[in-house]
């Protein structure tokens, strides 16, 4: 059975690139344009991995991470999260921890622009790790 990956990004071109990449390796992809759609898709699709952009309209990636800390989402807690953002990792970490006083708890962080090999390698590692666990 193919792994299902939820991809959340407001940039249609990024969604296009990532979808193309993931599908070339046989992953099934579900896309969402913002945090609200992301949470809805999470419930509906129960993916094996989430790839989330940070800066998005309506509800951004930071808000999604914070929301997932809530007990209501405990069912989805073991789904790994990979952040795909053009913001540097340290800057995002600092911002999230300053704003929420929570630990920036993500499984991986890939900076844009996308390097296909790197992204695929990280995705593969995450879905396999989760399978073992």
């Amino acid at each position: 059975m193919a792994y299902k990956i939820l991809l959340v990004d407001d940039d249609p071109d990024i969604r296009d690139v990532v979808t193309m990449l993931l599908e070339s390796k046989g992953y099934e992809t579900v896309t969402a344009c913002d945090g609200i759609e992301c949470l809805a898709a999470l419930r509906a699709e129960e993916p094996d991995l989430m790839i989330i952009d940070l800066l998005m309209p309506k509800m951004d990636g930071f808000a999604v991470l914070k929301e997932l800390e809530d007990g209501r989402w405990s069912k989805y807690r073991n789904i790994p999260i990979l952040i795909l953002s053009s913001v540097r990792e340290e800057a995002s970490r600092r911002r999230y921890e300053l704003e929420t006083a929570l630990e920036f708890n993500v499984d991986d962080y890939v900076e844009k622009p996308i390097n296909p090999e790197v992204l695929l390698e990280r995705v593969e590692r995450l879905v396999n790790k989760n399978k073992k666990a």
Partner: peptide, 24 residues
């Protein structure tokens, strides 16, 4: 500004990398 200036370039760069990676 940082986000809006970088986002389009990131998308273009990602496409180029996709092509260079032989995915298209």
């Amino acid at each position: 500004a940082s986000h809006d200036l970088k986002a389009p370039l990131s998308a273009v760069q990602s496409y180029i990398q996709l092509m260079l990676g032989g995915f298209s």
